[in-house]
Design a protein around this nucleic acid. Structure first.
Lengths: 245, 245
DNA sequence: CGAGGTCTTGAAGACGATCAACAAACGTGG
DNA sequence: CCACGTTTGTTGATCGTCTTCAAGACCTCG
């Protein structure tokens, strides 16, 4: 069964934005269903699926992606522990994208029936769950800005800044230490809308400018200040303030 | 004061996705606050604002946009009548983008206090409002796919297909008739992440291929089937099915 | 009628894609 | 523990899409 500690990242993420009552934490824990594991490369959900549950990542990394008719692939979101991969399926019902595992992942499922109960009994907790999907939307908008108006170098730097900040939030990154990012250059290309070759050259440029070290899955930011300035990274869109919501 | 008919587009948009009870329609109407008007070019909301209300467009077109330090601009959403421009400000609190009027617009405001009451008394209506922000997110994802993996021509065709479909939903477009789109080529460029010059050439190509006629603000699709196939437009992401949510 | 915004066109150049080949790292089974 | 096959990363050369710059036409509205 699900253990309370599985929800630590989620609760940490929520409590960064507002206070949760003990009753709300309880409600969240009792809404959780089964634990599951998926190997790297597996699909957790497929485009077109109609599921009766939403999935929370507890360990590992996943992506939302779509594959076009000609085989081209675009990743539209990267999920870290504490992120729901498809909370929107609770109301959208039919998946308009797939969800794949970047690394081996462990998840906890939330039956939609239980989520519905939360919306009927816990207005504030409902708003907090709603908030997590709004944060998704804010990140989507930032990616649109990056894809539309930033160079490959800026875009890459921006993604690294975002991932570090979000990982830090759930205790998985310190800004001056190396971090584990299980994502290949091909996947980075599918995320940023670039070719894998150009991703490679962009990373080399970031390395040449002494901004990062990226070897295998280990990434280290050498100069956070300069990286954020290259990226024009402003974390406002992550809404990190704790306030009544 | 707000008239019930101001909410027609919103209610039409919601009822396309699920049934609303009379009590829910009432609750929505009584949650509405003042009516306001803005001239084309005005800002309804500015990045950094903390507002105590959310805005619903009843007439006209608006955009969400961000301006980068170097003056570059990126539009991240286009709103039609029946769309909330910033329902997310109810929970995100601080705006991470601005909202501008593409045309003269009329709006109805919803004080956050009233929205909060809805979340406390009307679980299903709350889910429907939540749903509208999830639809925003789904559209964002589709734009990310378009920006990352589609050519300028495909991207432009896709945007036209999306706008026609969304306008049709609120009774403002027939697929074989001309439609009023108050958006300049510069603004199209800021939407698609292209230069205004390239937007111009892309539109000329769509015209040369007998797909559209676009003169001033009047747009007419000449061959919906071929346009959707050029755009690889699949409306799944707009979640047009009516079902329990 | 004039002025500012919008649209259009041409020329040159940059950024990133594509193609191709090879090196390095990884994992799997023998 | 090594051999081998596969995935991932790296490099060079060429190509194409889209950008930038610049100028002129058109249009709308005071």
């Amino acid at each position: 069964m699900t253990q309370a500690s599985d929800l630590d990242s989620l609760i940490r993420k929520l409590e960064r934005r507002d206070v949760l009552s003990a009753a709300e934490r309880e409600a969240l824990i009792s809404a959780a269903g089964s634990r599951e594991s998926y190997p790297a490369g597996a699909d957790l959900v497929r485009e077109g699926d109609r599921t009766d549950r939403s999935i929370l990542v507890t360990h590992g990394f996943t992506t939302r992606y779509r594959v076009l008719a000609d085989g081209q692939r675009q990743i539209t979101a990267i999920h870290l522990p504490g992120d729901f991969v498809d909370l929107h399926s609770f109301l959208l019902r039919k998946m308009d994208h797939s969800v794949g595992a970047l690394s081996n992942v462990r998840v906890v499922t939330f039956p939609h029936a239980n989520l519905r109960l939360i919306t009927e009994r816990h207005p504030h907790l409902t708003r907090m769950l709603w908030l997590t999907t709004l944060l998704d939307g804010a990140i989507h908008r930032e990616w649109i800005v990056a894809m539309g108006r930033r160079s490959a170098l800026e875009q890459m730097a921006h993604l690294i800044c975002e991932l570090f900040t979000r990982l830090n939030l759930v205790g998985l990154a310190e800004f001056d230490r190396e971090v584990n990012l299980p994502i290949t250059q091909t996947e980075l290309g599918d995320t940023l809308g670039l070719s894998a070759v150009h991703v490679n050259r962009t990373l080399q440029q970031l390395r040449a400018e002494q901004l990062i070290v990226w070897q295998g899955q280990s990434v280290r930011v050498l100069d956070w200040g300069r990286l954020t300035s290259v990226a024009k990274f402003d974390p406002t869109y992550l809404h990190l303030e704790r306030e009544p919501r």
